[in-house]
């Protein structure tokens, strides 16, 4: 389990992480989302032992990550901008990682090579961006990590390769209980794989729940009233859009409760729809003063 408690990190007076707290259960696929500048990458660099926090704790199964090789040995990290040595090929990097990670599985490397079909001897710098990402996955998954930290993992991959990669990841999660923490702006894809979501903003955790709880707690309602009809009192409206009589509302609350209350007001038309993760993201942050603004140019 990854536990972060009251993590604080400042850069030249700017507080990038401001008392951040989160928990990633073992075996979970945790989606870390947030607007640009929320502190996601900063958090990830703490999780991988690159940065040292100003205060707070960050542990994996109770052991701090920073300067603890035994924890780092269980961890694989794919950043958004992958690093490789200038003239190194995938095979060169494989040998390097094999020398560093005790759990590196050469057989798995070979098996993944069959699947990914990259030229392992070609310098990585000569591969396309998507191929470089594939090479990064190839090496990371060969490490057999207990924890996989991914920052924009499928950026640059074609749709087929995306599915392939997610399939491999989910296979590891299911088979080996790998814990995955993935940060991405592609909420559509995260929605398919994550079971827990953390929404960050301004260095703090705004919302942290399982995906199902998040979806249960926000409802999209389409309804229309006749003459004299009105919404009942006490509803938490996060967003409202009106086209003639048709209203589209985002309401906080459970779907069954909201349906019951709305039906009592006898609308002409009522429909409840589940929200996508992207919509949840937009409307939760809209409440935190990070809404989509209508611009007139």
């Amino acid at each position: 389990m990854i536990e972060v408690r009251e993590l604080v990190k400042s850069f030249d007076g700017f507080r990038a992480l401001d008392g951040l707290t989160l928990t990633v259960p073992t075996g979970a696929v945790y989606g870390l989302v947030g607007p640009n500048g929320a502190g996601k990458s900063t958090l990830i660099r703490h999780l991988t032992g690159i940065y040292r926090q100003d205060s707070g704790t960050l542990t994996v199964d109770g052991v701090p990550v920073y300067e603890h090789p035994e924890v780092k040995a269980k961890l694989a990290y794919i950043p958004d901008d992958v690093f490789y040595y200038t003239s190194a090929s995938t095979e060169d990097m494989m040998r390097f990682y094999q020398s560093q990670y005790p759990g590196f599985d050469r057989q798995r490397f070979e098996a993944l090579g069959e699947l990914l079909r990259l030229d392992r001897r070609r310098p990585i710098r000569k591969l396309s961006k998507g191929q470089q990402k594939q090479a990064a996955f190839w090496l990371a998954l060969s490490q057999r990590p207990e924890i996989l930290v991914l920052d924009e993992p499928v950026d640059g991959l074609d749709p087929v390769m995306r599915r392939q990669i997610w399939s491999l990841l989910m296979g590891d999660v299911e088979e080996h209980g790998t814990t995955v923490l993935v940060s991405s702006h592609n909420l559509r894809e995260l929605e398919d794989v994550c079971d827990t979501v953390g929404i960050m903003n301004h260095g703090k955790m705004l919302v942290e729940r399982s995906l199902s709880e998040l979806q249960e707690n926000l409802v999209k309602v389409q309804l229309a009233y006749g003459e004299g009809g009105a919404l009942p009192e006490g509803l938490t409206v996060l967003h409202e859009n009106r086209t003639g009589r048709l209203q589209q509302l985002i309401l906080r609350g459970r779907a069954d409760e909201i349906r019951a209350r709305l039906e009592r007001t006898k609308p002409l038309f009522l429909d409840l729809l589940p929200l996508s993760l992207e919509e949840i993201f937009i409307y939760e942050l809209g409440g935190a003063d990070y809404a989509v603004k209508d611009l007139v140019l």
Binding site: E70, K72, A73, P79
Partner: peptide
């Protein structure tokens, strides 16, 4: 002096 390489080196399982 290179953020990317620095990151890679310090995620390796060894102490400074």
């Amino acid at each position: 002096y290179q953020p990317r390489e620095s990151g890679m080196m310090h995620t390796l399982p060894l102490r400074r």
